[in-house]
Amino acid sequence: MVSNTEQHNIYTDGNYKEKNPTWHIEDSPWKANHVLSILKRNNLQPKSICEVGCGAGEILIQLYNQMPEYVQFYGYEISPQGFELCKNRENNRVKFYLKDLVLDNEAFFDVLLVIDVFEHVEDYLGFLKKINTKSKYKIFHIPLDLSLQRVLRINSILTAREQLGHLHYFTKETALAALEDTGYKIIDYFYTATNIDLHEKLAQTKFMNIIRKISFKFNQDLTARILGGYSLMVLTE
């Protein structure tokens, strides 16, 4: 995960690792494919890609396996427990650092990945302003925790806070506004079907996902706003 001086300490004291022992490594191929998709949609061919809050590092490993040999990858992680999961996976094109990217004055990359990160950061607006100088392009993946269904079932939001460490909750509109307010230019974005693609275990979830799929074909924004279960992939400058 990622930090600055105001960040909650659950990522450095082992609490997050205790609650999420895999550091969500199982979701990384899915996330990496969406990163590749938004790069391809916008004809971007970066030579350097950095991920802030890289966790176990699996997203970068997935990209390494699928992108040209000239691309170099860098992962920054402030959690010692997260760094333990990624440090032995380095190779000649993938490097990991137990370091706060915000404090690395020399760091600059073609693309910065901010995948399910800033909802965890206490001063997320300050954090967004600081990382804006670290790359030409930025790719964000943002959970859309605010929906009518989740507000009515408030325990699901509280679970995200307790289990996942989410401190801030967004709709598509507020997520994009936060980026624009902190100096980013929105180039492209699309929804990702988090619940449908990754959480298909319970019978109740399966039923809701059928409704989501049908509704999404008619109105994407309304489906995300009412039924939830989606995240947002955003490309910015």
Rank of each mutant, 00 (worst) to 15 (best):
M1N: 02
V2C: 02
S3W: 11
N4S: 03
H8D: 14
H8I: 10
H8C: 14
N9E: 13
I10E: 09
D13H: 09
N15V: 01
Y16L: 12
K17H: 08
K19Y: 12
K19C: 06
T22N: 10
H24V: 09
P29N: 06
K31E: 08
A32D: 06
N33G: 12
H34L: 03
S37P: 09
R41C: 09
C50N: 06
E51G: 02
C54M: 07
A56L: 10
E58A: 11
Q62S: 13
Q62C: 13
Q62M: 06
N65Y: 03
M67H: 05
P68N: 04
Y70M: 05
G75Y: 01
G75V: 07
E77C: 06
E77S: 04
Q81P: 00
G82P: 00
F83G: 01
L85I: 03
N88A: 02
E90V: 09
N91E: 10
R93Y: 06
Y97I: 03
D104I: 04
N105P: 00
N105Q: 14
F108L: 08
F109R: 01
V111T: 03
V114D: 00
V114T: 15
V114H: 03
I115F: 01
D116L: 04
V117R: 02
F118K: 04
D123G: 07
L125H: 10
F127T: 02
K129S: 15
K130E: 14
K130Y: 14
F140M: 05
I142C: 04
I142W: 01
I142L: 05
P143T: 14
D145E: 15
D145F: 04
L146C: 04
S147W: 05
S147L: 12
Q149R: 08
Q149W: 08
R150L: 06
R150I: 03
V151Y: 12
L152Y: 12
R153T: 12
I157A: 00
L158F: 14
T159V: 15
L164T: 01
G165H: 08
F170D: 01
T174N: 14
T174W: 08
T182Y: 01
G183W: 09
G183T: 13
Y184R: 13
K185S: 02
K185A: 02
Y189W: 15
F190P: 07
F190N: 06
T192S: 01
A193C: 01
T194N: 02
L198G: 00
L202I: 03
Q204N: 10
K206E: 13
M208E: 10
I210M: 08
I210Q: 05
R212K: 13
I214F: 08
K217L: 12
K217D: 07
L222S: 04
T223D: 14
A224G: 13
I226P: 10
L227F: 13
S231N: 11
E237R: 11
